[in-house]
Design a protein around this nucleic acid. Structure first.
Length: 411
RNA sequence: GCCGGGGUAGGGUAGCGGUUAUCCUGUAGCCCUGUGGAGGCUACGAUUCGAGUUCGAUUCUCGAUCCCGGCCCCA
């Protein structure tokens, strides 16, 4: 009986892992240059953390379990809630704004499809403590910068939910939420029916329908035409002006809603091509969650990047790290070990572990793509040197170890 | 939870009621004990699982499972 990996999980082979780590490294470098610090939260949390944030309904999509102390636990399905919990538990006295990032695996019990797995990786950023548009603009600019750094062309859509919420403020809170969800799903028929059902004022319905279809350069002006002067529209304009200064390209889209109640102002989504139905590689915005977890009224802005989807469309060439291969004879194996010790202070080195004969060792070096081999036989040991062979040109020269190191590290 | 398409050595495949289950590639070894890439030879290695139909199932039927894509959902 062969044991296979659980559904929706993946094994990453050496070549996959090399590329993932390489791309991860680039993303890390970018966020660090923007002054964000990495944090790590537990792989599992109390179930309540997520039901509090997203409702009881999420349990259906969670990998939850009861532990041996009868505690309801779950593998984390996302990291915003854990980070906010961490902030409330132990970081409230930190200097603000707090600029945090994470790169961790998350778990959701869902049907796998293209770009969707049961174990997946999120690279996310949370900026805690500023309600200014400056914070939102920096976070959005960072997201686009990260994608650019790994060579992905994303289509950024931005909205400010304050505008639509302002329009809806005369309605009951519950109805507002329902409308936001319908807008998020772009279910305009359902939206129409619902507005009919709750007997929404005719001019509100008219304005809402017009507003959510606004996209593109003149969308702000049109929004003003429809709704008049609003502080929320001014905020939105301020954000866009800063995005221009950052050199970020965006599409204004009053139809982006992000479904959930705790998104209050700026929201954004980034889509990439080549991903099928799951084409969103990044989503985020400003939100109010900290009070929900027992903290103060502290605003935050953040986003999550779908790392697996990024890998799916990322075409970066990963530099490979092919080792130098030492070729030894039976009688010089110990000398080979000693030479390897020296060389490994500077570069990756393979030594024969298969007791292959001379020719087979060379052949193996060729098969794994070695650019250089170092031959250590009786003659070389006798001369106190090693033979460096260039596997591309075929040339070889007799050198002492230090000369080899100099030669190979200066390339 | 729902819908569609698939599962034959590690990877890629042929066979479509009876074969010793085909070929390519791979891995290890030999030809060849101090010089790789080519070639030859040898070895290793597969019908996803379970039930049914049949004298006989890799092949047909049903169920499960996993993979791929889509719906729902998407924090």
């Amino acid at each position: 009986m062969k044991i296979t990996k659980p559904r929706g999980t993946r094994d990453f082979l050496p070549e996959d892992t090399r590329k993932r780590r390489y791309v991860e490294g680039i993303l890390r470098q970018v966020v660090k240059n923007w002054g964000f610090s990495e944090i790590i939260t537990p792989t599992f949390e109390n179930l309540e953390l997520f039901t509090l944030k997203s409702g009881e309904g999420v349990i259906g999509e969670l990998y939850n379990f009861t532990d041996k102390g009868d505690r309801e636990m779950t593998l984390r399905p996302e990291l915003t809630a854990p980070v906010m919990r961490m902030y409330v538990n132990e970081m409230q006295a930190y200097q603000q704004p707090l600029k945090l990032f994470y790169f961790e695996n998350c778990f959701r019990y869902e049907r796998p499809q293209k770009g969707r797995f049961r174990e997946f990786w999120q690279f996310g950023v949370e900026l805690i403590g500023s309600k200014r548009m400056d914070a939102d603009a920096e976070v959005i600019a960072l997201a686009t910068e990260m994608l650019k750094a790994v060579g992905i062309k994303g289509d950024l859509n931005v909205n400010n939910l304050g505008v639509i919420r302002h329009l809806l403020s005369v309605l009951e809170t519950e109805n507002q939420s329902k409308i936001m969800r319908l807008v998020d799903k772009k279910d305009y028929e359902g939206l129409d029916n619902f507005l009919e059902e709750i007997n929404a004022p005719a001019d509100l319905r008219q304005k809402l329908i017009e507003l959510i279809s606004l996209t593109g350069n003149d969308a702000i002006a049109k929004a003003r035409d429809i709704l008049g002067e609003l502080p929320e529209i001014d905020d939105f304009q301020e954000l866009l002006t800063m995005l221009d200064a950052y050199g970020v390209e965006y599409t204004i889209n009053f139809g982006i809603a992000r479904g959930l109640d705790y998104y209050t102002g700026t929201v954004f989504e980034i889509y990439a091509e080549g991903l099928g139905a799951q084409n969103q590689v990044c989503g985020g915005g400003s939100y109010q969650l900290i009070q929900l977890f027992g903290g103060g009224d502290v605003p935050s802005t953040g986003f999550g990047l779908g790392f697996d989807r990024i890998m799916e469309v990322c075409e970066l060439e990963t530099p490979d790290d092919v080792p130098v291969v030492i070729i030894a004879k039976d009688s010089t194996r110990l000398d080979a070990i000693k030479a390897a010790n020296e060389l490994r202070k500077h570069m990756p080195v393979y030594n024969d572990l298969m007791k292959r004969n001379f020719k087979a060792q060379l052949s193996h070096a060729n098969n794994i793509g070695a650019k250089h081999v170092i031959i250590i036989g009786e003659k070389e040991v006798e001369a106190g040197k090693v033979m460096l062979k260039d596997m591309v040109s075929g040339e070889q020269e007799l050198l002492v170890i230090d000369e080899v190191i100099t030669k190979l590290t200066n390339k």
